[in-house]
């Protein structure tokens, strides 16, 4: 039993370390953002006229909206396609094709965001541009972002589905249920937890993605009026301006990082709260 106790201690310590990293990062963000927060207060980041940090205008609201829109859109694309892929691999595809499908999706996971960005810029944006403008807008960014987070949904759903006990499916089939009914009534509910966590992870990944969105979203800081209007996300804002920012401006950019963390935390808490109610 001594080895059991040491196992518990070791694993719990490791878990505590993993959890502490996020505190370290938030602490770091707070330290860097503190001068701006102290000087400007929080409200100016929502009430100012526009975002022109060098002319002391610090409105972050349009960027928060753009971040939410692109991430939510990406999930709307990635979730059905990802779950369908997982179902396809497990129930529809011939064995050989299933293996290759899985492999291709794993490959998709490793393509650098710069390459996605380049593809979007050279191939997709000119196609979207036929609807007018430069083709660099929230729509293009959302599509590419959706493709980027798709492997996360697909691979985690795949793992969750593959892990379902075989007898469930065999039992359902023995009851005379059709394939689609088995998937709808047995497989998807059974793998709900894994699929949910895949979508969750994909959502947070979409929030955190920087480079591809920066290359495709057009980066205008304005309240988006339609899906085809350009917009700038919080992280693109950091990546765009940070390298060239001086003291005060830099601190303001960290506030936008902090804001992103705040949005993500709210969503995480909301989802885990809802899950708690369901259970």
């Amino acid at each position: 039993m001594r080895s059991d106790r040491s196992l518990t201690i070791v694993t719990r310590t490791l878990a505590a370390i993993s959890a502490a990293i996020v505190l370290l990062i938030i602490g770091f963000l707070l330290r860097e953002a503190a001068p701006a927060l102290r000087q400007l207060g929080l409200s100016r980041f929502f009430t100012d006229e526009s975002w022109h940090p060098l002319s002391s205008q610090f409105n972050l609201t349009p960027m928060i909206v753009a971040t939410l829109v692109t991430s939510a859109g990406a999930i709307l694309i990635a979730a059905p396609l990802g779950i369908a892929s997982a179902v396809f691999v497990n129930f529809y595809a011939p064995h050989r094709l299933a293996v290759w499908h899985r492999r291709l999706i794993e490959l998709l996971a490793g393509i650098p965001s710069v390459v996605f960005g380049l593809w979007g810029l050279m191939v997709l944006a000119p196609i979207v541009a036929t609807f007018g403008g430069s083709g660099q807008n929230l729509f293009t960014a959302t599509i590419v972002l959706g493709l980027m987070v798709l492997p996360t949904v697909a691979l985690l759903s795949d793992a969750a589905i593959a892990a379902l006990p075989r007898p469930w499916i065999q039992g359902a089939a023995a009851l005379g249920m059709g394939r689609s009914a088995i998937i709808g009534w047995v497989v998807l509910p059974g793998a709900r937890r894994g699929i949910g966590s895949g979508i969750m992870l994909a959502l947070t990944r979409a929030f955190g993605e920087t480079m591809a969105v920066l290359m495709l979203a057009g980066n205008i800081v304005e309240m988006p009026s339609s899906l085809l209007s350009p917009g700038r996300t919080l992280n693109a804002n950091i990546a765009l301006e940070l390298g060239y920012a001086t003291a005060g401006h830099r601190s303001v950019l960290f506030v936008s990082g902090l804001m992103l963390m705040l949005v993500v935390s709210c969503i995480v808490l909301l989802i885990s709260h809802r899950r708690g109610h369901q259970a």
Partner: peptide, 28 residues
């Protein structure tokens, strides 16, 4: 010009990004 009075359609970071955008958009 002062920056807040500029009304643009695309904002980019790097030179190459600007060039790729202009190369892909006829009216840019």
């Amino acid at each position: 010009i002062d920056n807040p009075s500029v009304k643009s359609d695309v904002i980019v970071g790097e030179n190459e990004h600007a060039i790729k955008t202009v190369a892909g958009t006829e009216g840019a």
